[in-house]
Amino acid sequence: MPDSQGNDIAAVAVPVTGFVALAPLGTVFPTPAEGATDPLTPALDAAFKKLGLLKVDGGPGWTWEQTGDPIEFWQDGYSIPSGLSNVQVAATAAEQNPWVREIKSGKTPDVNGYITFDGGGHAVQYVLFSEEIFKNGAIRRRIAPNVTVLSVVEDRNTRGEVLGDAFTFKVNRSPLVGNDHFGEWILPPA
Protein backbone atom coordinates (compact mmCIF):
# COMPACT_ATOMS: atom_id res chain seq x y z
CA MET A 1 0.00 0.00 0.00
CA PRO A 2 1.55 3.34 -1.02
CA ASP A 3 2.17 5.92 1.71
CA SER A 4 1.05 9.56 1.59
CA GLN A 5 3.91 10.39 -0.80
CA GLY A 6 3.01 7.54 -3.18
CA ASN A 7 5.92 5.31 -2.14
CA ASP A 8 5.31 1.60 -1.51
CA ILE A 9 8.03 -0.09 0.54
CA ALA A 10 6.26 -3.44 0.03
CA ALA A 11 6.89 -3.14 -3.72
CA VAL A 12 10.68 -3.02 -3.29
CA ALA A 13 12.34 -6.07 -4.89
CA VAL A 14 14.74 -7.64 -2.39
CA PRO A 15 15.92 -10.98 -3.83
CA VAL A 16 16.11 -13.92 -1.44
CA THR A 17 16.49 -16.92 -3.74
CA GLY A 18 16.09 -18.20 -7.27
CA PHE A 19 17.99 -19.94 -10.01
CA VAL A 20 19.38 -19.77 -13.53
CA ALA A 21 18.89 -22.78 -15.79
CA LEU A 22 19.99 -23.56 -19.32
CA ALA A 23 18.84 -26.11 -21.88
CA PRO A 24 19.83 -26.91 -25.46
CA LEU A 25 18.58 -24.50 -28.13
CA GLY A 26 15.07 -25.46 -29.19
CA THR A 27 13.98 -26.85 -25.82
CA VAL A 28 10.32 -26.12 -25.12
CA PHE A 29 9.76 -23.47 -22.47
CA PRO A 30 6.65 -22.26 -20.60
CA THR A 31 3.93 -20.42 -22.50
CA PRO A 32 2.90 -16.99 -21.20
CA ALA A 33 0.01 -18.63 -19.29
CA GLU A 34 2.15 -21.47 -17.88
CA GLY A 35 4.89 -19.08 -16.73
CA ALA A 36 2.34 -17.12 -14.73
CA THR A 37 1.50 -20.08 -12.47
CA ASP A 38 2.91 -20.61 -8.98
CA PRO A 39 4.23 -23.19 -8.70
CA LEU A 40 5.34 -23.33 -12.31
CA THR A 41 2.92 -25.77 -13.97
CA PRO A 42 3.92 -27.79 -15.83
CA ALA A 43 7.46 -27.89 -14.46
CA LEU A 44 10.35 -26.84 -16.70
CA ASP A 45 11.32 -29.36 -19.36
CA ALA A 46 13.80 -31.91 -17.96
CA ALA A 47 16.42 -30.63 -20.43
CA PHE A 48 16.82 -27.47 -18.30
CA LYS A 49 19.72 -27.82 -15.89
CA LYS A 50 20.37 -25.30 -13.13
CA LEU A 51 23.78 -23.72 -12.67
CA GLY A 52 23.49 -24.79 -9.04
CA LEU A 53 24.40 -22.52 -6.17
CA LEU A 54 25.19 -18.94 -7.15
CA LYS A 55 27.54 -16.64 -5.27
CA VAL A 56 25.87 -14.20 -2.87
CA ASP A 57 26.43 -11.41 -5.43
CA GLY A 58 26.05 -13.72 -8.43
CA GLY A 59 22.32 -13.72 -9.11
CA PRO A 60 21.09 -12.93 -12.61
CA GLY A 61 21.96 -9.44 -13.77
CA TRP A 62 20.34 -8.34 -17.03
CA THR A 63 21.50 -5.43 -19.17
CA TRP A 64 20.27 -4.08 -22.47
CA GLU A 65 21.22 -1.02 -24.45
CA GLN A 66 20.85 0.39 -27.93
CA THR A 67 24.09 0.15 -29.88
CA GLY A 68 23.19 1.61 -33.27
CA ASP A 69 22.68 5.26 -34.10
CA PRO A 70 19.00 6.17 -34.31
CA ILE A 71 17.49 6.58 -37.75
CA GLU A 72 16.80 10.28 -38.11
CA PHE A 73 14.39 11.98 -40.46
CA TRP A 74 14.57 15.24 -42.30
CA GLN A 75 11.93 16.75 -40.00
CA ASP A 76 13.62 17.97 -36.84
CA GLY A 77 12.90 15.92 -33.72
CA TYR A 78 11.87 12.69 -35.45
CA SER A 79 13.88 9.50 -35.06
CA ILE A 80 13.41 5.80 -34.42
CA PRO A 81 15.82 3.32 -32.83
CA SER A 82 17.96 1.36 -35.29
CA GLY A 83 16.99 -1.91 -33.62
CA LEU A 84 20.64 -2.77 -32.94
CA SER A 85 21.25 -3.68 -29.33
CA ASN A 86 23.50 -5.36 -26.82
CA VAL A 87 21.51 -7.60 -24.46
CA GLN A 88 23.29 -9.68 -21.85
CA VAL A 89 22.64 -11.60 -18.67
CA ALA A 90 25.33 -12.39 -16.12
CA ALA A 91 25.38 -14.89 -13.26
CA THR A 92 28.17 -16.28 -11.10
CA ALA A 93 28.08 -20.01 -10.48
CA ALA A 94 29.56 -21.13 -7.17
CA GLU A 95 29.55 -24.86 -7.94
CA GLN A 96 32.25 -26.60 -9.96
CA ASN A 97 29.84 -29.22 -11.29
CA PRO A 98 30.02 -31.00 -14.68
CA TRP A 99 27.22 -28.84 -16.15
CA VAL A 100 29.04 -25.60 -15.29
CA ARG A 101 32.22 -27.02 -16.82
CA GLU A 102 30.29 -28.02 -19.95
CA ILE A 103 28.84 -24.52 -20.34
CA LYS A 104 32.33 -23.02 -19.90
CA SER A 105 33.92 -25.26 -22.52
CA GLY A 106 31.06 -26.17 -24.84
CA LYS A 107 32.13 -29.80 -24.37
CA THR A 108 31.15 -32.74 -22.19
CA PRO A 109 33.79 -34.06 -19.78
CA ASP A 110 35.20 -37.48 -20.75
CA VAL A 111 35.10 -40.52 -18.45
CA ASN A 112 38.15 -39.12 -16.63
CA GLY A 113 36.49 -35.74 -16.02
CA TYR A 114 38.87 -34.20 -18.59
CA ILE A 115 37.91 -31.32 -20.94
CA THR A 116 39.99 -29.16 -23.24
CA PHE A 117 39.19 -25.45 -23.47
CA ASP A 118 39.45 -23.14 -26.48
CA GLY A 119 40.05 -19.65 -25.10
CA GLY A 120 38.27 -18.23 -28.15
CA GLY A 121 34.98 -19.55 -26.84
CA HIS A 122 32.39 -21.82 -28.42
CA ALA A 123 29.23 -21.44 -30.48
CA VAL A 124 26.84 -23.66 -28.48
CA GLN A 125 23.41 -22.02 -28.17
CA TYR A 126 21.10 -22.41 -25.19
CA VAL A 127 17.68 -21.48 -23.86
CA LEU A 128 18.06 -19.59 -20.57
CA PHE A 129 15.39 -19.44 -17.85
CA SER A 130 15.78 -17.45 -14.65
CA GLU A 131 13.57 -17.15 -11.60
CA GLU A 132 13.99 -14.66 -8.77
CA ILE A 133 11.89 -14.80 -5.62
CA PHE A 134 11.70 -11.60 -3.64
CA LYS A 135 11.26 -11.00 0.09
CA ASN A 136 7.76 -9.57 -0.46
CA GLY A 137 6.70 -12.83 -2.17
CA ALA A 138 6.78 -11.53 -5.74
CA ILE A 139 8.39 -13.72 -8.40
CA ARG A 140 10.13 -12.57 -11.58
CA ARG A 141 10.78 -15.11 -14.32
CA ARG A 142 12.56 -14.49 -17.60
CA ILE A 143 13.03 -16.65 -20.68
CA ALA A 144 15.67 -16.03 -23.35
CA PRO A 145 15.22 -18.62 -26.14
CA ASN A 146 18.64 -18.04 -27.73
CA VAL A 147 21.76 -17.27 -25.69
CA THR A 148 25.46 -17.94 -26.19
CA VAL A 149 28.35 -17.71 -23.76
CA LEU A 150 30.01 -14.33 -24.31
CA SER A 151 32.62 -14.63 -21.56
CA VAL A 152 33.63 -16.57 -18.48
CA VAL A 153 35.74 -15.01 -15.76
CA GLU A 154 37.02 -17.26 -13.01
CA ASP A 155 37.33 -15.60 -9.62
CA ARG A 156 40.80 -15.10 -8.25
CA ASN A 157 41.56 -18.13 -6.11
CA THR A 158 41.41 -16.62 -2.62
CA ARG A 159 41.79 -18.79 0.48
CA GLY A 160 38.57 -19.01 2.47
CA GLU A 161 36.36 -17.59 -0.32
CA VAL A 162 34.07 -19.21 -2.86
CA LEU A 163 35.74 -19.74 -6.24
CA GLY A 164 33.07 -18.79 -8.76
CA ASP A 165 32.71 -18.66 -12.53
CA ALA A 166 31.19 -15.37 -13.70
CA PHE A 167 29.27 -16.08 -16.89
CA THR A 168 28.08 -13.42 -19.29
CA PHE A 169 25.59 -14.67 -21.84
CA LYS A 170 24.76 -12.80 -25.04
CA VAL A 171 20.99 -12.75 -25.51
CA ASN A 172 19.99 -12.95 -29.16
CA ARG A 173 16.66 -12.05 -30.76
CA SER A 174 14.26 -14.94 -31.24
CA PRO A 175 11.02 -15.41 -33.17
CA LEU A 176 9.84 -17.44 -30.16
CA VAL A 177 9.41 -14.15 -28.24
CA GLY A 178 8.11 -12.01 -31.11
CA ASN A 179 11.60 -11.27 -32.51
CA ASP A 180 12.52 -9.63 -29.21
CA HIS A 181 15.31 -10.79 -26.88
CA PHE A 182 13.48 -12.22 -23.86
CA GLY A 183 10.13 -12.56 -22.17
CA GLU A 184 9.28 -11.75 -18.57
CA TRP A 185 6.65 -12.71 -16.04
CA ILE A 186 6.04 -10.80 -12.79
CA LEU A 187 3.91 -12.70 -10.30
CA PRO A 188 2.69 -10.32 -7.58
CA PRO A 189 2.89 -11.30 -3.91
CA ALA A 190 0.14 -13.72 -2.89
Rank of each mutant, 00 (worst) to 15 (best):
H181N: 12
P32F: 06
P2L: 09
Q5F: 12
V28K: 15
P189H: 04
G52S: 11
Q5H: 11
V171P: 09
P70L: 00
G113T: 02
A91I: 02
V152Q: 08
Q5G: 01
G164Y: 13
D118L: 11
A10C: 00
L40M: 04
G35L: 09
A47Y: 02
I139P: 00
E184D: 02
G35D: 08
E132W: 06
S174N: 00
G137S: 00
D3L: 10
V20I: 15
T27V: 10
G83K: 11
E34P: 04
G119K: 10
R101C: 13
V89W: 02
G83N: 12
L25Q: 15
V162R: 08
G113E: 05
G137K: 03
L163N: 06
A46C: 02
P60W: 14
G164T: 13
P15I: 07
I103M: 02
E102T: 14
E161P: 07
I133M: 13
H181A: 09
T92V: 12
E95T: 12
P189M: 07
T31K: 04
L51N: 06
P145V: 14
G137W: 01
T17A: 14
A43I: 11
T31R: 10
V111F: 05
M1A: 10
F169Q: 08
F134A: 06
L176N: 06
G77E: 07
G52I: 12
G61N: 10
G183M: 08
T116F: 01
R156H: 08
V20Q: 13
L22K: 09
T116S: 15
G6I: 01
D57C: 07
T168P: 01
S85F: 02
E34N: 10
W64R: 04
T67Q: 00
P32D: 03
E161S: 12
L25R: 15
Y78W: 14
N97S: 15
I9Y: 14
E72A: 05
D180K: 14
P32Q: 08
F19V: 03
L40F: 05
L128R: 06
F134V: 06
E154C: 06
P188W: 00
T31S: 15
I186Q: 10
N7Q: 07
E161V: 08
P189T: 05
R142G: 00
A10R: 13
T63H: 07
N157I: 14
S79L: 01
G26V: 09
G26R: 01
I80V: 15
A46F: 07
V56E: 12
W64D: 11
V87R: 06
A36L: 13
P175C: 02
F129K: 03
E34C: 06
G121N: 02
E161R: 13
A33Q: 12
V152M: 05
D155T: 02
A166D: 14
Y114R: 08
F29P: 01
D69F: 06
V89H: 04
D69Y: 00
T168I: 13
S79D: 12
P30R: 11
P60R: 13
S4N: 04
H181P: 04
A138K: 08
R141Y: 10
W62H: 11
